[in-house]
Nucleic acid binder design. Structure first.
Lengths: 107, 107
DNA sequence: GCAATAAGTCAGAAATTTATGACCACACCT
DNA sequence: AGGTGTGGTCATAAATTTCTGACTTATTGC
């Protein structure tokens, strides 16, 4: 009996990369908040009182390195730092909105 | 000084529930595979050689309890078990396809 | 100079997720 | 009666994620 050739997909599911960008305890919330306004570190600490500094910081870093948010230093007095949606981030928004509407339908 | 009223959203981002359903090392792959054909345990062990029994089993359980897959016992000889996409699962597909196309565009 | 605020970092602990390998139950084949 | 394939579970261990609390650096206000 000849062993049937198993076509094993070595590459992971393409969507999984992007899903990973949004997985984690706080990233979906951060992403969602970024749709309505730019994010600021100290404000987030109040908006998400359950989240630790560390977690917010890590989530922001990940969202940056995945190209969904951009860290922008505003030349104001005093200096402020804002995290803004990138074009890639914006392009992801409709899919997320679609997912949200699915959740809401089911209630 | 009156403390400004902080409107703290106690409910998590709605999409985060569904994103959680698809988060994890193997769930995106399982979901994707389920779009093209029904899933079987022993077949999955070969299709995803890096995944442990345990992980596949847990992922299938989660996808079931999140209502995306249904476990169906086929009355054949010998008995077989299949995991099929539910309507809810099917309704999620377009959003995932959209996310995939975003990933592919960016290459 | 001194304290406060913004925007973090770092080390260590706790919680969660994933992997490993042994084991179980049932049906089927010989 | 013994071996094989399917479809798992269970306990334990390893890896990853998240939290906690202390500390840092730069700027502003008094």
């Amino acid at each position: 009996m000849t062993t049937p050739i198993e076509v094993v997909d070595t590459k992971p599911c393409p969507a999984s990369q992007l899903l990973k960008s949004l997985s984690g305890k706080w990233k979906p919330e951060l992403f969602r908040l970024s749709l309505t306004s730019n994010l600021r570190f100290s404000t987030l600490l109040h908006q998400l009182p359950q989240a630790s500094k560390q977690s917010i910081s890590a989530a922001l870093r990940d969202l940056q390195s995945d190209g969904l948010l951009a860290r922008v230093i505003l030349q104001e007095k005093p200096l402020r730092v804002e995290y803004q949606l990138t074009d890639k981030g914006k392009s992801l928004a409709p899919a997320l909105t679609q997912i949200e509407s699915l959740v809401l339908e089911g209630e």
